[in-house]
Nucleic acid binder design. Structure first.
Lengths: 221, 221, 221, 221
DNA sequence: GGGTAACCGAGACGGTACGTCTAGTCTTTAA
DNA sequence: TTAAAGACTAGACGTACCGTCTCGGTTACCC
């Protein structure tokens, strides 16, 4: 699925549809096939690359992976990687989120509960090694405008939008403080997690994951 | 002052005393001189290096600086840099903070005001190009345990300690919520700023700087 | 002895009197003391340096020794070495020959026997690890006019002179071929040994040492 | 020709076929092409490197060339040099011998004449700047087992074999002394030239070149 | 079913920067 | 003074990757 999508628009963000929140990715299959001439993208290579990245991440940190080493490990030419991913950040994010499922939001619940649910989902994404890997990706992206945009759009944007929407609803419903600056609240809530991971802890510990959403909820009330 | 301190203890964190919050650095002058044998550290070279970094940061981002280029620009051997700074992070942090003044805290004020004061000071540090530079340093440090520790100790630690102390005082005085988790509050407050800078904005805009402290204050009340 | 001589004329070839053929080095002790002002040369350091070189030569080849490493091993400043030896070649030659004795020539014997005696002495000097070390010195000296001169004068010159004299005597006495080119003969005879050592063998084997002088003798007859 | 050979067997002694005595290099063209995968070696780069070395040798001595400088002069990446030559010795030898022609031996002549011819050819190789350059290569190779082997095999071996063969033939034919030790004779004859060059003279002078072969011939008779 | 277009692997290419090493000089204090 | 210590400029070393390129070959479509 992801591969077909990529094949039709190579070199653009291949991540949006991987993260899972992309709501309209079903439309794509309805599009005119527009089968391009030439040899189609090798699904085998794609999997080999993703697998290589995931296997390598077990032993080394994300910043220690080199495109060269990934290519060798995957038994693949470097060009094949460069053809399909614009940078290491995109590749690793796709690998890490390869099996991230898309869970629909409980839109019918009150804002408070939705906020808790949203944060729990976010924290679950950053559980275990994933947290450090994604923080490293966000960090690496800091020195590269393109990569930063690609990281933000494919990973953070949807979370930010969801959270902002929930906060607005809460404010309108009188459940949250009305003098709250939504943007700053989003920064603080996600920033708290990001900063915690950047400050040295290799993983989010369970007590943090459990208590953080409630602490965030108190912030907005 | 900073140079003298460095000369007596090379290769240890040369940054702690640069940031300015180091309260006991006056003791050092009372220590026995203990002039070491051999040629003393060249103050001229040290300044040339710091200046070169600062001049170069005007044109390129921190991650685009190479030790090699700094050495050439400063007219200095690479070894001289490696002798005194363990990594690029430490060097650039020292350069960026070279003229950071040490301002004593207003310990007599109520907790709320102190929190505002503390955050304003923090935000002032991250004003202009400094913000992006320091975020880049924090990011680069993510892929290097040593650099991360060095960054944290020399830059964030003192801020975290100060803020935590203020929050505790506020909680004890009944000015802040007593059910507040101090650690998480610190993460959120500083994390909000860090995340804001990492999300794309090249600089902190004035309205953010002005409003953020009050938003943070509301978080703890 | 060598140290006293060196102290009076630092930076000149400190080797001539070490090799042993220097016949008039006894006169030096009769010279007026002429105590120079300032701190006298440290005999302790000199010995430490020589010992360090000899100890290090047991583990690594001559070309792997660096002035820096020698200074560190000897617990001595680099300048102390540079002050007393013009280059690594001189230093190592002195270390290797530190206990080389000066044996008087048997001037009364016929030319053939003197030639054998002279060559046996030369080969004995190059026995064991010494051979490779001296060849390495000769090799290193190739890329440095000064070092080459210093090596030649302190090591080869006296051997060449002795051999040339013997050949001339032999020619005059009718014992050797009169159409022999003395210079070329010297080149061939010493060159044969040098080339043999340069061609790969780590040491001169005993059979070579035993047979070479006779082979050389046949060359000149 | 040399380049084609190199392309099919990279990283092995690239010198053997350059010196010119390699008798069976014609077979290579009969081999199945067996085109290797990947981008083929750039003949342009190879030539640029060889030319750069030769141009630089006009101004400085072989030991003053650095791989770095050669790469820069040739407009080539350092890795390209390291990819094809194991060390500086091999590279410079190939450069120096790049236009060394392969002259067939006059096998039908008597041993004495063949010895003269062989030596004249050898001396002609060492004429002019080549002599010093090759001596420097031989010297540099002394501190490196690999380089020594590579130098010996690519440069000296064939000469030694030819000379030894000639001497054996001469001994069997009764033209040379039968009590002659062939190995030692070879050492002396080539060693005489090598030692002469190592003893200081920058070039072989014409009179040496003219007279040396006859002197060597007398040695074996 | 023959073109042809896009893919694939392999691997060489010009580069940049790394962190280490050594050379030889310079600048201190101690003896 | 000189010794000893050790910082200094300078620059080569060999390695690792970068992102690009150039091969010979492989699919699948489309005509």
């Amino acid at each position: 699925m992801s591969s077909a999508a990529n094949a039709t628009k190579p070199r653009t963000s291949a991540l949006a549809d991987v993260i899972g929140e992309n709501k309209n990715n079903t439309q794509r299959t309805e599009q005119k096939p527009a089968k391009k001439a030439g040899r189609p993208r090798s699904e085998k290579s794609r999997k080999a690359i993703i697998n290589a990245v995931n296997r390598m991440l077990l032993h080394r940190s994300a910043s220690e992976l080199s495109i060269e080493a990934i290519a060798k490990k995957a038994g693949v030419g470097k060009t094949t990687i460069y053809r399909w991913w614009p940078d290491k950040v995109s590749l690793i994010l796709e690998a890490v989120n390869a099996n991230g499922a898309n869970v629909p939001q409980p839109t019918h619940k009150p804002a408070g509960e939705r906020l808790l649910w949203q944060l729990e989902r976010f924290l679950r994404l950053l559980r275990g090694r994933n947290g450090k890997v994604i923080i490293e990706m966000m960090s690496q992206a800091q020195s590269n405008k393109d990569a930063l945009g690609s990281f933000y759009e494919s990973f953070m944007l949807i979370h930010e939008e969801n959270l902002a929407e929930i906060i607005e609803i809460g404010k309108n419903a009188g459940a949250f403080r009305t003098d709250l600056d939504t943007g700053m609240a989003v920064d603080m809530i996600y920033g708290g997690v990001v900063y915690h991971l950047m400050s040295g802890s290799d993983e989010l510990d369970e007590s943090f994951i459990e208590r953080y959403p409630h602490e965030a909820l108190r912030l907005v009330r």
